[in-house]
Design a protein around this nucleic acid. Sequence first.
DNA 1: TTATATTGCGCAATCGATTGTGCAAATAGA
DNA 2: TCTATTTGCACAATCGATTGCGCAATATAA
Lengths: 346, 346
Amino acid sequence: MANKKTRVTIHDIARELNVTASTVSRALQDHPRIGADTREAIKSLAVKYNYSRNMLASGLRTGRMNTIGVIVPRTNRHFFSNVIGGIESYVSEKGYQVLISQTQESYQKEVFSIKAMVDAHVDGIILSVSLETMDDAHLQLAIDHKIPVVMFDRVIGSGQINQVVLDDYNGAFNAVKHLLDLGCERIAHFGGPSHLNVYNDRLRGYMDALQSGNKPINPHWINNDVLTEDAGYAASETLFQSDNAPDAIFAASDYSALGALLWLKENGYKVPEEVCVMGFSNEPFTAFTTPSISTVEQPGGEMGRMAASLLIGQIESENSTFTPQKEVLKTHVIIRESSKFHLKQQ
Amino acid sequence: MANKKTRVTIHDIARELNVTASTVSRALQDHPRIGADTREAIKSLAVKYNYSRNMLASGLRTGRMNTIGVIVPRTNRHFFSNVIGGIESYVSEKGYQVLISQTQESYQKEVFSIKAMVDAHVDGIILSVSLETMDDAHLQLAIDHKIPVVMFDRVIGSGQINQVVLDDYNGAFNAVKHLLDLGCERIAHFGGPSHLNVYNDRLRGYMDALQSGNKPINPHWINNDVLTEDAGYAASETLFQSDNAPDAIFAASDYSALGALLWLKENGYKVPEEVCVMGFSNEPFTAFTTPSISTVEQPGGEMGRMAASLLIGQIESENSTFTPQKEVLKTHVIIRESSKFHLKQQ
DNA sequence: TTATATTGCGCAATCGATTGTGCAAATAGA
DNA sequence: TCTATTTGCACAATCGATTGCGCAATATAA
């Protein structure tokens, strides 16, 4: 009977069958030099005793732990929790486990997390950088240890690392284009720190869409670092109490769009008749506000699976010639009540 | 200079200082039998070479991996993602890492996840069971391996395992009491599978509140397994097209409350005037529906930190005498528009 | 029948850190 | 001064699995 106190090891099995541990190890890996009889005897005994390989010992010897590290700013953002779900469901089918760490948007914690992942001998790392992160120098530690890295959504650096991103530029472009089609002429933007690709791309999409519609770009209407509900609320107040108020807001975050919507409602502005509002990410609440908020879908589960797929491909690829890939997921604008129509529309 | 290809080991440090690896190992652990000079020389060389302990080797030898396993139905449920966030932030400060697994509400996957956690030699497991899970027999594997377990929210079994739960009974009781105070007299319930504590407790709270208000309990108004938006929608249709329609709904899930709200609005019922609606969990969207949905707060982050605290306490406790603890977090009813008042109110 | 492959498995080192034991030198006590 | 204790470190086994090498025994070829 299997001993309950301590795990069954290959030595236990070896002893019982009068072979050595090396034979057991090879048999369990279907090594061709082990005879069929021996192999089957070992395997059935392994099943009988409910043997499971000690991953620490195996990992120590082989350097592979079948674990991937995931580093995100926060686990409880809807988007990131979706990504984590996608990663976990993909890699668990491939026999990998998921080690999680959150940076709380702190660069220092991100550095620490990477170090912790390297120490834990993960086979690969999937990462979305913090708001504070300015470059990818800290990833060198993982690269030095030959640990593949995939960045998603908030990516950064020189492009020597696999990336999975949304087509933020087109998402923003199409969103603003939609506002222009409604007749909006004075479209403000709530953005994020422009050293991050996602916010920079959304800003560029916004500006290019304005230009393509022959609308002037007013710096006064471009607000950076307006990503939270409070910031959106405050920025709206400033914006609409100036003598150059916009007639639409395109926010790079659903939260700041929500803040804008609340301020507008509280101050008697009609949405969408007088002011159209659009957000970004399709957070669940956007469907339920009054009016519901138009936004751009950001498919977290899909990004997670895609990132995991790229990573595992790189982990398991034999050839060491690595050319970084960049996967770009298509965007999809979701039109809701906050931009259904506009007074200026013909 | 530290070799970039391969990690620095205690042997590298030992060689350079003409001591043995055991001395290095002991010095790094502040073992009293190592002289102060030797200790400091070793420590400064370790810093210089950026040494970090190989957790696999260490874990193999000591059996402690400084990792805790977290098993949840889905990572992307707002509540669970909050719990995960709370756990991660708590244990990372204590020097632990977090291994994540999701069961997708499948008992079979839950069994598999536990086995995977045991195989990975986690130091402890935090778990919220799947909807399919009927008992805690599968946890025996972890217990046999002396791995402490803490269950949270959806807990099950004979009580021999640490638990962190919400006071679902009082939450439900107070919610229904609130509806009664408004003048509601015919309160229906949307529940979940009653073998799970949370749904059973909410049902009991509902029934006891009715009794305390001298209202009859009508089995026709008690709907089990109505947890999703679709189920709430469908159940509402059945309920309100019968000749014994309720004048309020207390749902054990915000999602089924949402389904009810949508059906009621589509079919011309006024909420809250004609029908009051309450949910459970305070999902973010509940604040933004029209009308906003009254609900019961379920503090995920706090539960996560509490569960992590209990677990690490048990892991690090010296004495082997273990008495299972049950932490019960207070509930907090959030009254919103969907139960602000009622036509029958005096 | 002899030379050559092939098959089947054991031996022993290895991955890196930990820890019980042993032994010599230094210190303390008598 | 001589024994007893403490201090400081080395030796070697251990955790469990993996893997290059070697050596028989069997099978195949010549």
